[in-house]
């Protein structure tokens, strides 16, 4: 590659990187500015006198630590549950021949096509009938078993399709049953796909917005995205600096984890079998 082309490519990459980096940068720096500076013209790259006051307010105005914990544990439970459900059914759809498998797979796939807004009212009714409104159950059970897990099943199926049959044949000759083949042979090989599924699922749960708004009403039970929009004064006027501080707090830890583990993160996603 010529060095001139190299410079052009680097230039292009740098320019294109701006909209990806600047918002996060701006969010974090602005959260340390007083409100008047947030709207200053032109916007400053650094706060004139950084202050963490707004961060303190985040915790005094709402049970933010508790809300953080809620979001984290819900996302983790959902991730583990989804991995279990999706790898089992993904494996069966890819590897086990049983009557109606294709038809059932198509039936399950339709779940991929249903926006959560479509079913939220009946879901609300159902969980209400079971007395589970204002609990975390709907936010855990629906993603694991309902429409959101379908994408995970799909990814797992596509991955298991690419596994060489010979590996399983060997296990079968050793007298292993289906579950043992799945558990001891197929699943360990599926680590990249599981990685992808866990990332997708974690982020999906972490980002849920409509569902918590509809299902939860006690601040101690809120999740983070819901809490983010709560930093308003009693008449609905937004408290910008506090809102940005809270937003930063939700973003920074995940970003740090991501930067540290980015190789596994991205390569896990890349090797999902979504290739074909």
């Amino acid at each position: 590659m010529s060095s001139r082309l190299r410079v052009v490519l680097y230039g292009l990459l740098c320019v294109m990187a701006v909209p990806f980096v600047f918002p996060t940068w701006w969010m974090i720096t602005s959260s340390m500015k007083p409100v008047s500076e947030i709207f200053a013209w032109p916007p400053a790259l650094f706060p004139a006198s950084p202050s963490l006051d707004a961060y303190r307010d985040v915790f005094t105005l709402q049970p933010f630590a508790q809300q953080y914990l809620n979001s984290a544990y819900i996302a983790i439970v959902v991730t583990i549950g989804t991995m279990a459900v999706a790898s089992l059914s993904g494996y069966a759809f890819a590897r086990i021949r049983f009557p109606g498998a294709n038809a059932l797979f198509l039936v399950v796939l339709t779940g991929l096509l249903i926006p959560s807004e479509v079913t939220i009212v009946p879901l609300f009714q159902m969980f209400n009938a079971w007395g589970l409104i204002d609990t975390h159950w709907p936010l855990i059970v629906v993603p694991i078993l309902g429409a959101p897990s379908v994408l995970a099943t799909f990814i797992m199926r596509q991955f298991f399709l690419t596994l060489p049959v010979e590996l399983e044949e060997a296990g079968r000759l050793d007298g292993l049953g289906r579950f043992a083949i799945f558990w001891r042979i197929a699943l360990p090989l599926a680590r990249p796909a599981l990685g992808a599924v866990s990332i997708f699922t974690f982020l999906h749960s972490w980002n849920l917005y409509l569902e918590p708004i509809v299902f939860l009403s006690t601040p101690e039970k809120f999740t983070l995205p819901q809490a983010l929009t709560q930093f308003v004064d009693a008449y609905g006027g937004p408290m910008w600096d506090v809102q940005l501080s809270a937003a930063s707090l939700t973003a920074i830890p995940v970003l740090i984890v991501f930067v540290i583990a980015q190789r596994q993160f991205i390569e896990g996603l890349a090797h999902t079998g979504l290739k074909g």
């Binding site: 279990a84 459900v85 999706a86 089992l88 059914s89 494996y91 069966a92 759809f93 086990i96 021949r97 049983f98 009557p99 498998a101 059932l104 039936v107 399950v108 339709t110 779940g111 249903i114 079913t119 879901l123 059970v141 629906v142 694991i144 078993l145 309902g146 429409a147 897990s149 379908v150 099943t153 049953g177 289906r178 579950f179 799945f182």
Partner: peptide
């Protein structure tokens, strides 16, 4: 195998039926 297949997809199918 047939039984295993149905058992493996059962959670997903039941979930889809109930929540989708």
């Amino acid at each position: 195998d047939t039984l295993a297949g149905y058992l493996f997809v059962a959670p997903q199918l039941a979930g889809s039926a109930l929540f989708v």
